[in-house]
């Protein structure tokens, strides 16, 4: 499937792309556009104004996608969603001290490479976060 989002990806879009490819559509192909009107007709838009998979009711796009694809039962993904929410919206709805650091890392990445580069670098980052919170859930505490 084809997925479209705005170019110049930051935390929410990078995390959404990772989530879509790992949990929704392993063959996901991403298109980055500067204007929502440029999105190809056969692509599903996300994290764009007017898209179903966008910000809704105070949630960021990552949270919207979790709900839309019934992924909310996974506690590791729920924890990552809280971090993405705080990194993106910074509204103190969740306690996520990881958020400001992750946000700065993503901002810096967007300064040294294009969206493909950001996606390539963040994939193992999100894989690692997912594994960390998966183990944390199993252990009931912070993994070593």
């Amino acid at each position: 499937m084809k997925w479209a989002t705005r170019a110049g990806i930051h935390i929410d879009r990078a995390a959404c792309a990772w989530l879509l490819r790992r949990f929704v559509d392993p063959d996901a192909e991403f298109v980055f556009v500067t204007d929502p009107a440029e999105a190809p007709a056969d692509a599903t838009p996300f994290d764009m104004r007017g898209a179903e998979l966008g910000h809704h009711h105070g949630d960021c796009s990552f949270e919207t996608i979790l709900r839309r694809y019934d992924l909310t039962a996974d506690p590791a993904l729920r924890r990552i969603a809280e971090i993405i929410h705080e990194a993106d919206l910074d509204d103190e709805r969740f306690d996520a001290p990881e958020a400001p650091g992750l946000d700065v890392v993503l901002r810096g990445l967007s300064m040294i490479g294009d969206d493909e580069h950001t996606m390539a670098v963040t994939k193992p980052v999100f894989d690692g976060l997912y594994e960390y919170y998966r183990r944390a859930t199993l252990l009931g505490r912070e993994p070593a």
């Binding site: 110049g8 930051h10 104004r49 007017g50 966008g54 910000h55 967007s110």
Partner: peptide
Amino acid sequence: ARTREQLEWIAE
């Protein structure tokens, strides 16, 4: 990039 995006979401 950030201010524009934040205001886009508030507009939405």
